[in-house]
Design a protein around this nucleic acid. Structure first.
Length: 575
DNA sequence: GCCGTTTTCGGCCCGACTGTTTTCAGTCG
């Protein structure tokens, strides 16, 4: 069986090479491939087992593309792709990664100067050959030269983990919001949708005086370079090579601008099509009927005019959310105010905890939680874990502390460590002393997928285990997670009644939105947790909730939105 | 190359910025 990822890889390469062949990434054929890729990304099953006819049922996939996919599945290659590869060697295609160098220009310099590789391009720039070509000039040549210098730092396909980008975006937005005359400054783009990695930071600023904001951005100390600067839009590069685009709009247009700059692009295109169907125009300035403005100030107003409810940024991916919202089949997505407790929570009793038990519990009480599981590491984590004696003493502290918070149920919990063969800390009797446990993988990330899968199945078979924590153990952009058979694991969770944790730490977001959507479909119970080690980590709940939304999870699917009584029943259900 | 409550052909989202040009093409998101 061939994975969807491999098929998507083939289609992405075809799209790229056709763009080069057509001389435009906007060519309709290219967009058709991109639409097909998008459709397959949203397809829940394996595409390789489908017939051509069945593939054509996927949105964006027509006869031609379906036939090529089938050809790849059956023969392992695609004739059209092989032809294009012969026509455009890899070294040439690589040049498309240079910012400012698109397919048209690349075709031109190849035809006129015989440029086939990066070294050819550098040599041509050195002898100032580019500037002699029609449509190019000295400035363009210098711009490309500069882009080549920084290729590793900010190539077009460079992605930044959201955990890295979020604080930069938040800091910058806060500063811009403080400028006189600025009504709002909001990070938009994939960051606002909580994508795992982002290409650049987009900040939308609502202000009447754009000039002042542009000035502030261009002279910002974090800007190592100004990529572009116009009347309403300025782009800078930070030291790490991350690009930040700041766009100023009139406050009365903030909703339309936010909608546009939040994307996703595919979601926007679908919304605009919906506007066109009604004889209207939707752009970043508003929704228009001819000259008449229909809506612009609020996102919700624009959705409403298009006969849709306000869709949260987290699900704006054009993966069926617009159709579902239109026909009323979109789940009632979980929201932050429905969360009643946190179920993965450390104090400094754990070696890696940073705040005291008292501080952590007080922070949870401040958030109005009605239950809270304190889950210190088990003894198998040599450095961070607690012995039996330490755990029992900790239980006494928790029970004692609970008398000060009568409105909250404090659960004596544990984060159990799943060993390489699926073993757990302590012994079966001792494990049953805990009110709540979350079992997680912390080591042996490189085992084969079959071993990891049975490892997890064994752990969830233990009656003391309530949830599986950070499913894959990944750190986005730093460490890939364990490989596993997702369908088998989800089925195991559904059958055993063990919950799947959605870890809200920004560098984890584990289980992923995609896995979450599968879990919801499989009937798995979810819990959204922060894995807090410090009082400042409790805010991660918002990210966990947004990631749950990305997986189309309803409050009913998430155990820590349930009433205290129902939740406590759930903790005892497997014992 | 895909698609359809304007359906089998003729459309296909929309605009900012830049550089090279004198009205627009290319790139990008």
């Amino acid at each position: 069986m061939i994975s969807n990822a491999r098929i998507l890889g083939v289609l992405a390469e075809l799209a790229k090479l056709i763009a080069l062949d057509e001389g435009s990434s906007q060519a309709f054929k290219v967009r058709a491939y991109e639409n097909a890729i998008h459709g397959i990304e949203g397809y829940p099953g394996n595409v390789s087992i489908l017939t051509v006819k069945e593939m054509e049922a996927i949105k964006g996939v027509g006869g031609s593309i379906a036939t090529r996919v089938k050809e790849f599945v059956d023969t392992g290659s695609v004739k059209k792709l092989d032809e294009l590869r012969a026509k455009y060697p890899p070294a040439l295609v690589e040049l498309l990664k240079v910012p400012g160098l698109g397919p048209k220009t690349l075709k031109l310099i190849r035809a006129e100067l015989g440029i086939e590789t990066l070294d050819d391009l550098k040599a041509a720039i050195d002898r100032q050959a580019l500037r002699e070509l029609p449509g190019l000039g000295r400035t363009t040549e210098e711009k490309i030269a500069k882009s080549i210098e920084r290729l590793g730092l900010h190539g077009k396909d460079r992605r930044t983990p959201i955990a890295e980008a979020m604080p930069i975006a938040a800091g910058l937005a806060t500063e811009l919001a403080a400028l006189p005359g600025v009504e709002a400054a909001i990070p938009a783009g994939s960051l606002r949708r909580l994508a795992e990695t982002i290409g650049d930071i987009d900040i939308v600023v609502a202000a009447d005086d754009a000039q002042q904001v542009m000035q502030a951005v261009a002279t910002h100390p974090a800007a190592t370079e100004i990529v572009g600067s116009g009347e309403t839009k300025t782009s800078i590069l930070t030291r790490s090579g991350l690009q930040v685009d700041v766009r100023v709009v009139a406050p009365s247009q903030l909703g339309a601008a936010l909608l546009y700059f939040t994307g996703s692009k595919a979601h926007n295109v679908a919304l605009r099509q919906r506007a066109i169907d009604r004889g209207w125009l939707l752009n970043e300035y508003g929704l228009f009927e001819g000259e008449e403005l229909l809506a612009a100030a609020d996102e919700s107003e624009i959705y409403q005019r298009l006969d849709l409810p306000l869709l949260p940024p987290s699900i704006r991916e054009n993966q069926g959310e617009i159709e579902a919202a239109a026909n009323g089949s979109l789940p009632d997505l979980v929201s932050l105010d429905q969360v009643k407790g946190d179920l993965h929570f450390h104090s400094d009793q754990s070696g890696d905890g940073r705040s005291s038990l008292e501080e952590m519990v007080a922070a949870a009480a401040d958030r109005g939680y009605t239950y809270l599981a304190i889950t210190e590491h088990g003894e198998d984590l040599a450095i961070n874990g607690s012995s039996r004696e330490q755990m029992l003493a900790h239980r006494d502290r928790i029970r004692e502390l609970n008398t000060k918070y009568p409105e909250m149920s404090l659960l004596f919990g544990c984060e159990l460590n799943i060993g390489p063969q699926g073993s757990l800390d302590y012994d079966p009797e001792f494990r049953l002393l805990f009110d709540w446990t979350v079992a997680s993988v912390h080591s042996h990330f490189d085992l084969p997928a079959e071993v990891q899968t049975s490892r997890l199945l064994k752990a969830m078979a233990d009656p003391a285990v309530n949830a599986i924590g950070h499913l894959t153990g990944r750190y986005i952009g730093r460490r890939p997670g364990i490989e596993l058979d997702v369908d088998t694991v989800l089925e195991g969770l559904a059958v055993s009644g063990v919950a799947l944790e959605l870890n809200g730490a920004l560098d984890r977001l584990d289980a992923s939105a995609k896995v979450t959507r599968g879990a919801v479909a499989a009937g798995v119970t979810l819990v959204i947790s922060t894995d807090s080690h410090h009082t400042s980590d409790l805010r991660r709940m918002a990210y966990g909730v947004a990631n749950a939304q990305r997986g189309w999870a309803a409050a009913a699917d998430v155990a820590n939105t349930w009433s205290t009584e129902r939740f406590l029943d759930f903790t005892r259900s497997r014992r």
